[in-house]
Nucleic acid binder design. Structure first.
Lengths: 358, 358
DNA sequence: CTGTTAGCGCTTTCAG
DNA sequence: CTGAAAGCGCTAACAG
């Protein structure tokens, strides 16, 4: 492949003139410009990415760091990536997905600087080595979700308002008269599940009630989403027939819930109302009945994070900014008024009837 | 950030010794090695990715080139990317997703070499500028799907055996007694739709029948998958009540078909059997009834393509290899024997007569 | 086993 | 507006 000197020679100019034609950093007379471009064209020349990066110290590549244990795109990630890609595309950045495992990169021969200007970190944990290491090296990054507590004010992040989301869902169900609401939460160690629980509890408190501690279930690591929904719903609905509503962490989980409800001879929303945090935005309309959701817009999350990261990259001073994204309720047909006849508690049901009268 | 000279100085050795400690290309005595590593550790040094790449002419990054118009991950892409990532992870490569638009990179200031060793090209078209350009520049690549005809023997590719897949689906339905089978095909300009049609026709021929040309519909570019399924199924089932089976290009399309069938007061599989090429592997079990599919394993496709690409990168001679992946039928509950009562038969149900009258 | 030297292809002063 | 020269941080011969 031809290099800059070849082009300079062919066009009868100096290297730096060629450089400036391609970088646009200095004005070059139109005549010379054309001559250079023609020579380049003919030699099929294009500037070497690395040579340029080496001196400018800029790559125009941003990295996405996923949990290296999992190395998996989930349904949830798709719309997120679409948002990231969209913004990258707009601003002329490339996207590097880096999933090399830890042990791999600890090998001496694999240690290198990262070929990126900045990074988006996914799935932060309470104690997160990846983040610690990057902070220590002064790398620029944006976190998706809440960063570890000790960095909460020091790092930029983009997060859904998970407390608000859970509160909205819960309040909506409370408004429909439900009092025994099962929260099928995320995995316990993720910060999001704490937030969800907080929102849930808060919604009860706001109307002067106390949430039932036993109605918050955390997801185990092992089962699939659909399975988790199915097994858990079946178990809890059997154990506690007072439950008239279920909040599912994802729409896939809700799918399992639907199946459990139907197998128990019950119906949605007649007997059990179902609402989910909607992580993929593809299918809720295809549920039968269509699934009411708290819309978590992954694409916006991805796009905002990318914008923020690039903003940090281009700002001269250190820039720290947190963006919290509110989510909204999308009503479809899976929630209805709480049923008022309960198998085991005539008193309770009359209370509820009274309440409805208000 | 410290550089190699700093480390060399600190450790009291030469630059090349440091280089060899990190590259592992030459044996270094353990004593010196430790000294170097300690110095590096203390200076928080790691080799500069670009400087290294510049001289080795190797990046250990592979690129995925998606249709820049679309800049969207679809359901279909997920499992594919999981396969790619898995293999990248195994072999120590990074993945660059490049979706910059054409006009963007035509700007002089945006022209650069690509920072990748090789690329995987998605969604090849019959005439594909991206491929032509890369061939002209001698870049190494692996195509997913069939490359343009003129390159078919010259380029490496990984493809599903789409002819076989369509034939399998069609033969299965023929075996159930169906004779009027609607093929809801992919977009016409994609090579895959030709293959599907060929397999479809072939299955009829193998049992001495001739496929009805009018039963092959191509998808338009504009509508969503679900919509395409819905609108097309509704239209054709109305127009031609002889149709007892539908082959859908994707399971999302099948979702639309289900809805159309149900709105027409018909049932799956009682009146209409449905089978789909399964592009996402997530939902077929959740259909009601569960959707019979030709399983296209995107993850295997991605993994094989990555393996092949890296193999080409590492081979000294030019390596061209084609990998064809067979797919298999997964029977669920959406196909049944063809119904035997047709509107045009002497014995007709009143509803059907009515419809014909319109 | 270690050190010296010459690039890789570009950008960036600094003079003209 | 253009050119010459000095690096960026590393690897790869080639000597020792």
């Amino acid at each position: 492949m031809a290099n800059m000197s070849d082009v300079a020679k062919a066009a009868g100019v100096s290297k730096s003139t060629v450089s400036n034609v391609f970088s646009g950093k200095r004005a070059i007379s139109e005549a010379v410009r054309m001559r250079v471009l023609a020579a380049a064209e003919q030699l099929n020349y294009r500037p070497n990415y690395f040579a340029r990066s080496m001196v400018t110290k800029e790559t125009r590549i941003i990295g996405v760091v996923m949990d290296s244990e999992k190395v998996k795109f989930s349904q949830y990630n798709i719309s997120f990536f679409n948002g990231v890609l969209k913004e990258c595309n707009r601003q002329g950045y490339r996207l590097l997905i880096d999933t090399l495992h830890k042990e791999y990169r600890k090998q001496v021969t694999q240690m290198t600087s990262e070929p990126v200007d900045g990074e988006i970190i996914l799935d932060p944990a309470r104690v997160d080595e990846r983040i610690q290491e990057r902070v220590a090296n002064g790398r620029v990054m944006t976190i998706i979700g809440k960063p570890p507590l000790k960095y909460e004010t020091a790092l930029s992040y983009v997060n859904n308002d998970n407390v608000q989301a859970a509160e909205t869902a819960t309040a909506y169900l409370l408004g429909l008269g439900h009092r025994h609401i099962l929260l099928m939460n995320a995995v316990k160690k993720r910060t999001v599940s704490q937030d969800r629980k907080a929102g849930y509890v808060q919604a009860f408190e706001k109307i002067g009630l106390t949430a039932n501690e036993n109605c918050n279930v955390y997801r185990g690591e092992t089962v699939s989403s659909v399975e988790y929904g199915y097994i858990t719903a079946k178990k809890y609905l059997r154990k506690n027939p007072m439950i008239t509503a279920i909040i599912a962490d994802t729409d896939q989980i809700a799918l399992g819930v639907y199946r459990a409800v139907s197998e128990l001879g019950l119906s949605v929303p007649g007997d059990v109302s179902v609402i989910a945090f909607n992580n993929n935005t593809v299918y809720p309309d295809e549920f039968n009945p269509p699934l009411t959701c708290i819309e978590l817009n992954g694409e916006i999350l991805g796009q905002e994070a990318t914008k923020l990261l690039i903003e940090q990259l281009q700002s001269k001073e250190k820039l720290v900014k947190q963006i919290i994204i509110q989510s909204k309720l999308v009503e479809r047909a899976s929630c209805g008024p709480a049923r008022t006849i309960f198998p085991s508690d005539p008193v309770q049901s009359s209370t509820l009837v009274q309440r409805e009268d208000k």
